[in-house]
């Protein structure tokens, strides 16, 4: 009872983002480089993960590889990549990632750590904090893949975790979706060339939603769930809590 009262005495901490403010609140997202005209961009060789690629006069960013280390954005460079704020980072990777309508208000996820450094996992864990309060959106963690609608995979998929990951995917009932979280899960990131890494998630199981970032901030993760649940573009972030 003591703690219940203490909890109720606290102000509402849940974050609501007004539709108008598309830009990031400071500290909610690290931002990432944006495609820049080649004449203003640094050399592609500056990128430690080879995420920069020149195409038709534009320096493009492969977000699956980008770890936003800011090497292409440091002040000492003559030409810098433009930096974009925001968190609408989730990308669709399969023809029909959206789950049927029944899942709009109820989605269970099983998180599989396939070699994560801990940062992506902690951002997922942070979703359950009062600040993001993902339960109000009908999303919940489940301990078993048997109850899961979506498998959230983080990390570069190590050789030793590959079979466990396949087994977890097989155990899920249909319809099921896979969300790959973080640059490691999408491209191997800094660990891509390791002999102990079996490759990005899509080499093991098919991926429906990709959320790039190192780590992707919690709001970008909610953006991924929005694509799965088919809620309005700002839906999950907007929520229903009044400040």
């Amino acid at each position: 009872m003591l703690w219940l009262r203490k909890g109720l005495n606290q102000p509402v901490k849940t974050l609501t983002v007004k539709k108008s403010s598309a830009s990031t609140l400071p500290g909610l997202s690290s931002g990432r480089p944006a495609p820049t005209a080649s004449k203003n961009a640094p050399l592609a060789t500056i990128c430690p993960t080879h995420a920069l690629r020149e195409q038709e006069g534009m320096m493009d960013v492969d977000y699956a590889r980008c770890i936003h280390c800011r090497r292409c954005h440091q002040p000492s460079l003559k030409n810098q990549m433009a930096w974009e704020e925001g968190y609408h980072w989730a990308e669709i990777r399969s023809p029909s990632p959206r789950l049927p309508g029944a899942f709009r208000h109820s989605l269970h996820m099983r998180v599989v750590d396939a070699g994560d450094c801990g940062a992506c996992l902690n951002e997922l864990h942070q979703l359950a904090s009062p600040v993001y309060s993902l339960h109000r959106l009908g999303i919940a963690f489940t301990p078993t893949p048997r109850d899961a609608d979506v498998l959230v995979v983080t990390g570069p998929v190590t050789v030793s975790m590959k079979e466990a990951l396949e087994e977890a995917y097989r155990a899920m009932p249909g319809p099921k979706r896979v969300m790959a979280v973080g640059s490691c899960a999408l491209s191997g990131g800094m660990f891509a060339s390791s002999f102990a890494v079996a490759g990005p998630v899509e080499r093991v199981i098919s991926v429906d939603i990709a959320v790039p970032g190192c780590p992707p901030p919690p709001l970008a993760l909610l953006d991924g769930f929005r694509l799965l649940m088919g809620t309005a573009s700002e839906g999950p972030v907007e929520g229903t809590v009044k400040p």
Binding site: L25, P26, G27, L28, S29, S30, G31, I67, H68, C69, R70, A119, N122, E123, Q126, C214, P215, P217
Partner: peptide
């Protein structure tokens, strides 16, 4: 995490 993110550009101080 937000303080770190706002000041250093990375929530986990990478």
């Amino acid at each position: 995490l937000q303080i770190s993110g706002a000041l250093t550009g990375h929530r986990y101080l990478f």
